[in-house]
Amino acid sequence: MLQGYRPQLRYLLLDEGRYNDVELGESQNLVSALFQLENSRSTEDIQAVLERLIDWLKEPSQTSLRRAFTVWMRRVLLPAKKAPKVELPPLTDLHEVHTMLAERVKQWAEEWKEQGLREGRQEGRKEGRQEGLQQGEAETLLKLFKLKFGEVPDWAVQKILEADKAQLDSWVELILTADSVESLLG
């Protein structure tokens, strides 16, 4: 009864992942250029496609297509793939995108490299502090062992030095009630 109202849709699936760069480069159409831009891995790839688009869309009647590609690249492609967290200048034409990429790519690479170095240093400092705290806790535990039990066997020293923070915390809490090194460390 309601089947007459059910939409009857047909569609054509375009799977951009099924085409390789060679196939896309050989066909000269806007869809292949769009797929190449989507699949690009470097700014050099983007610039090569841009040069072809500029050549293909040079007629005055194609101004709206140039503008559409420019807006899509500024709002979608570059922020998502190539220039995350980078403020892009207003761009109105493919020539401007091409020029901007040529000028800014080196700057972005340096900024990303510096950002990576800063993040790496911060991560290294954090890990270093944690390792230092853990090593200090192990040394304190060894001192407590010596004070309570006298000489600490080599196997116990090794076990303490290899223990993680949670295990060290547990032993520090239990050392006051332990009867021997063996009973505490197992």
Rank of each mutant, 00 (worst) to 15 (best):
D154H: 10
L34H: 06
I46N: 06
S32C: 14
R75W: 02
R67A: 08
E26C: 12
D55V: 09
G120C: 06
S27Y: 07
R41W: 11
S27N: 07
E38W: 09
E162T: 00
Q47A: 12
T70R: 06
L88W: 04
K143M: 01
M73K: 00
D179S: 09
A83Y: 00
I46C: 09
Q167H: 03
P89W: 06
Q36F: 11
S42H: 03
P60R: 06
D164W: 02
K85H: 11
E59H: 14
N20G: 13
Q167D: 01
A156Q: 00
L168P: 10
A48S: 14
L101R: 10
N29R: 01
P79V: 09
E103I: 14
E162Y: 06
D45T: 12
T70Y: 06
E114M: 14
E151Q: 06
E114K: 10
R75T: 00
R52K: 10
L30I: 06
E44W: 09
R18K: 15
K82C: 10
E103D: 09
Q135G: 00
V181S: 00
L53D: 04
E110D: 15
E131R: 15
Q158A: 12
Q134I: 04
R104H: 07
W171S: 13
L174K: 05
Q135I: 02
Q134H: 04
E103S: 11
L161G: 07
L133V: 08
E123C: 07
Q3T: 14
S170H: 14
L57A: 03
W112D: 15
A163C: 03
R18M: 14
P84K: 06
D169W: 09
L144F: 05
M73I: 06
E162L: 09
Q3R: 12
A109M: 11
L2A: 07
R41S: 11
L133D: 05
P90L: 03
Q167L: 08
R10H: 11
K159C: 09
E162H: 08
T70D: 03
Q8C: 15
E16C: 15
E38F: 03
A33C: 05
L14F: 11
F35D: 04
L176S: 06
A33F: 00
E162G: 02
I46M: 08
T92M: 02
N29A: 09
E26D: 07
A33D: 01
Q47G: 10
D179I: 13
D169K: 08
E131T: 14
S180A: 07
R118N: 03
K113L: 14
E26N: 14
T99L: 14
H98W: 05
A80S: 05
L88G: 05
L168M: 07
L53N: 05
E119S: 03
W171M: 13
A83M: 11
N29Q: 04
W112Y: 13
V105C: 08
V181R: 07
